[in-house]
Design a protein around this nucleic acid. Structure first.
Lengths: 192, 192
DNA sequence: TCAAACTCTTGATCTAGATCAAGTTTTTAC
DNA sequence: GTAAAAACTTGATCTAGATCAAGAGTTTGA
């Protein structure tokens, strides 16, 4: 499934044949079964990871055992724990597969090497980071200003297709509400 | 007050004399009085802005006129609206000064030029963005998992010094609660 | 220097969404 | 194919925090 990542690169950057090959030479293909962990709380995250197929969630577990979903990532997105990676510290997050998933991994060492060697690659990485940051800001904004119902409508509007492949309870958690509340909201909005 | 920005650069990067001068040649010094806008909703943001002195808030206004504070930025931090800047679209945010404030501005054109010309500068900018993203992720995490009281304690722990220079009502808004609730929490926690 | 305008506190009441508890439906795994 | 486990719904009740209201500081600016 490396072709999917290659296609992504081709869309986002202009690379020479040699550069493309250099990138591919570092790529590690990884497959996850549904429920399988990519990262477990307490481990140090060491990769840059691109999803070519499937869906993954990033979440924390509180003292009472409750799970809080921070993020979903699907094909053509990146995943991982930047904080753990940058600070070389144990992660507070778990990442596991919601569906059978395929990824392209780079060790961060190799990834940084690619960023240094290939300016176009570095620029692409920075552009992605910009967009991730903007998305995070918008999410904070939404959490401060929207009601539960508005958060849900905003979510399905922004990420159509997610609702059908991700269990409702996880979406509820991502939106900061209980599964019961989301169920009632869905019933409400279906009527309209 | 450019020296403060120069000091920041010296701490974060290794620049030649010529590079430092090149950067300074693009710098625009801007002063804001308390309450003065740096950016108003509907305008397109065109700068990269570093605060050398003072404090600024980024906020939105909802249909009912309620203000929602997204961010505070103080000296040695950056501010602005990345989304408006990147997409060249009217901003949904207002930014105004909580105290008399001094900034160093770069037009985004010049800023990008500096990034291209000076790799060390580009690297610094990317490192800042990384940290901003991590901070945003942590804020999302906190908003999903913490109670009102925990959010406040987390805030004063993370940003000691902010509480004394920013009006309580704005902090309450930033934390996603009403001023009344924050006032009661402070009374509560003072007792302990 | 003093009135107007903010800022913060405190109390009473209300409500969106949480929690608790049972079903019902769907998926999974042998 | 079917039993067990997940996933979802629905109802009853509860509660953290919101809203409304009024008073007590504190700042501000002419």
């Amino acid at each position: 499934m490396y072709e999917i990542f290659q296609k992504y690169l081709d869309e986002k950057t202009e690379l020479t044949q040699a550069e493309s090959e250099r990138i591919q030479s570092f790529a590690i293909i990884k497959k996850l079964r549904k429920r399988q962990y990519l990262l477990q709380e307490g481990d140090v995250w060491k990769y840059d990871a691109f999803i070519t197929q499937g869906c993954v969630r990033t979440y924390t577990v509180d003292e009472k055992g409750g799970e809080h979903v921070n993020n979903f990532s699907i094909e053509n997105w990146w995943t991982g724990d930047r904080e753990s990676l940058m600070m070389q510290q144990p992660s507070r997050f778990n990442i596991d597969a919601i569906e059978d998933t395929e990824l392209v991994l780079f060790t961060h060492e190799n990834f940084e090497l690619l960023c240094k060697e290939i300016p176009a690659f570095n620029n692409m990485v920075n552009a992605i980071l910009q967009r991730s940051f903007i998305a995070a800001q918008n999410r904070i904004q939404a959490s401060l200003t929207l009601t539960a119902e508005e958060k849900y409508l905003n979510f399905i509007n922004k990420y159509p297709g997610f609702a059908s492949r991700i269990p409702q309870a996880m979406i509820a958690s991502y939106l900061g509400m209980t599964p019961e509340t989301l169920s009632r909201i869905r019933k409400q909005t279906a009527k309209k």
